[in-house]
Design a protein around this nucleic acid. Structure first.
Lengths: 211, 211, 211, 211
DNA sequence: GATGAATGAGATTTCATTCAT
DNA sequence: TATGAATGAAATCTCATTCAT
């Protein structure tokens, strides 16, 4: 055995799960869970159907891995960003919203909300994981910013959790729109106008009005 | 013969379609399209598998009928209500939001948004129908109210279509929440607080500030 | 009850089976046994599906009735004709062949040979009936003519049963051709040329050559 | 591991299609297309229902494959034989007739004419293929021999295509007989007597009578 | 007698999963 | 470890037959 070959083999082996997850993400997002055939995933990942089962117990396990592996890294990145942020709450929220759209709305992650929503009923395990590890954390991230905005007299007083939800709703809405209805629209949906309106209304609504 | 006795064999041509659609709505909403077995639909509707095919050409046709029959009547009712309404734009929008939640969020229709979103990719025909007959009409309904609010100096000037979207987003968000994540939440999601916050922010944001 | 109405009703009742058999013949011949749906037979006969079962026990029974009722009358007519015939064997055979084509080959009975052949395996009862009541009788009819032709020195000596089969084969062949392949042929199959050739060869082959 | 032990699970990619076609031929010929269950085909071929679909798209495709694979090889063999033949037209035709009976009439191919005739209506594609690739070619083969017989003064002048049809008819007739009615006959049908009579009449009828 | 809505057995087909190679 | 041929459970859909009206 040649050492470099063996090493390359090792590398390949280490990368396999990621390649499979990547292929699966594309297909799950495009077709949904039930309509995605493992044969296609395998083909797209450049492996055989049998190989899938070396890395994942079954279709459901693959699905879970896809969700886990694609969502968490982004969330952690966001948390780190917020931790280090210096500046006003408005500016930060504004940045978060546009950043979310950049990393989710404009990438293939855009289909993930739809996917998770669609399959939450069939995969309670996934839904719970997503709830605990993504939703709660993400909402806390935004709610904390709102809270600090109120503390600093930037925002008027309101329930930060619900404010966070109000802030997120249009993002989820837009992602879903893109996945499901964009293809039919006559007048194109302009995400920039939408976010601008949303943030304008939101900040107008939440900012402390000077007497 | 006692007619009230439960008979396995009954001729009820008129009632059947409605009963089948009703059963199908429940199951589609609960499990999604693919995971719903026609045998189950039949059992729930109290008919045999074959009877389904007397009234609907195939599974997809049944799905379409479910969407068509459950959504349109509500929308029409809303359109009529708006047409006859006398009062301020704020009051009307406020009413519309709570009414939506009452007729959709708190009934079994609550699962429909999720269902349509989940299946839009697999049923472009449905998605298009829903886009044309529901989304466009519903948005126009709200946008027209916003527009008239602006015309009457109640609201400051902004793009009515996008304002309408901002208004709707949290409703869709809440419906999806209920279908998919409510079961896991630790702190209960209070729809009243949510709508109150949303509308408070929204009207604060959109109302004409007196100089 | 009005007597004429009642009488008309009676007449109608008497004619029903015939109308059903007629419709069934058309469809069996056109589509084959398995591909013929009883609903279609009913529609074509102008009755309901249920009515079929008032007159025939099941699909197989209807099929048998179709065969029985459409074939036997023609055969009997032929037997009567032969019994009364005065003239040479050649002339009679010649006449029989053309007559067969006229009454079978050129009517909807043309599809019957194919039908019976196709279903003989699935309906041994039909096949046996057809063998006993049609094939044996028809062959005897022709064989007897051959036999008398030999007795009268018109034909040279040979086995009359096999001569009869030789005489019939091209007729069956032509009927099958028409049902199954006529639609594809480039050069049209000319039945007159075919029968002329066949009979020419046949009579040339069987006639007593004068020394 | 002992390879000769009967294993339920075997990989035999190369042999499978042939085995399946073979099993299907038997069953199609025995029961007809519609009455043949794919489960039975699978069982007879020693595979599972699913395996059928690895090799054939659907039932119709399997049917087509059966026809294609079983008929064409024999026809090609015959064409090669004729091409290389040295001798009189009568001898050749005589040989062809007996040979046909040997390879078709006395093997399981005997049921194929019936099968194709029976299904021509439901499978126009098959019928057309059979017409183009089998009937036209086979007829041409025989017609060419007749033609050369006429050219060499062996046969008197007639239309070679129709002579070929006359020659073939009794063969088809006999094959159909065997498949459909042989089981009921009282006096056994002797194929040798039949072919002898047929050829005797045919050659008597077609040969050039010396003046 | 006549109807046609309702039934349900049974057919074809799909595809996640297994396992000999 | 990797393959992909093979499996078989399970789904949709059809249609001969039944039976309340």
């Amino acid at each position: 055995m040649n050492k470099t070959v063996s090493q390359r083999w090792q590398r390949r082996k280490a990368e396999r799960p990621g390649e499979i997850i990547n292929a699966a993400l594309d297909l799950f997002v495009e077709k949904g869970y039930a309509a995605t055939r493992l044969e296609e995933v395998a083909r797209k990942a450049g492996v055989s159907k049998g190989t899938l089962y070396l890395y994942f117990d079954n279709k459901a396990a693959l699905f879970k891995a896809v969700v886990r592996e694609t969502v968490l890294p982004e969330l952690e990145r966001a948390e780190n960003f917020v931790r280090d942020y210096q500046g006003s709450a408005s500016e930060l929220l504004n940045h978060m919203v546009y950043k979310w759209w950049q990393t989710v709305g404009e990438t293939k992650l855009c289909g993930l909300p739809k996917l998770i929503i669609a399959e939450a009923g069939n995969f309670p395990e996934i839904a719970r994981f997503y709830y605990d590890e993504v939703i709660v954390r993400a909402r806390k991230l935004l709610a904390d910013i709102c809270r600090s905005g109120m503390a600093q007299g930037e925002f008027r007083s309101c329930h930060p959790d619900y404010a966070a939800r109000t802030l997120i709703s249009p993002l989820v809405f837009a992602a879903i729109w893109k996945t499901s209805f964009k293809q039919f629209e006559q007048v194109p949906f302009d995400i920039n106008i939408f976010l601008e309106h949303h943030l304008d209304l939101f900040f107008n609504g939440i900012r402390k009005t000077e007497v």
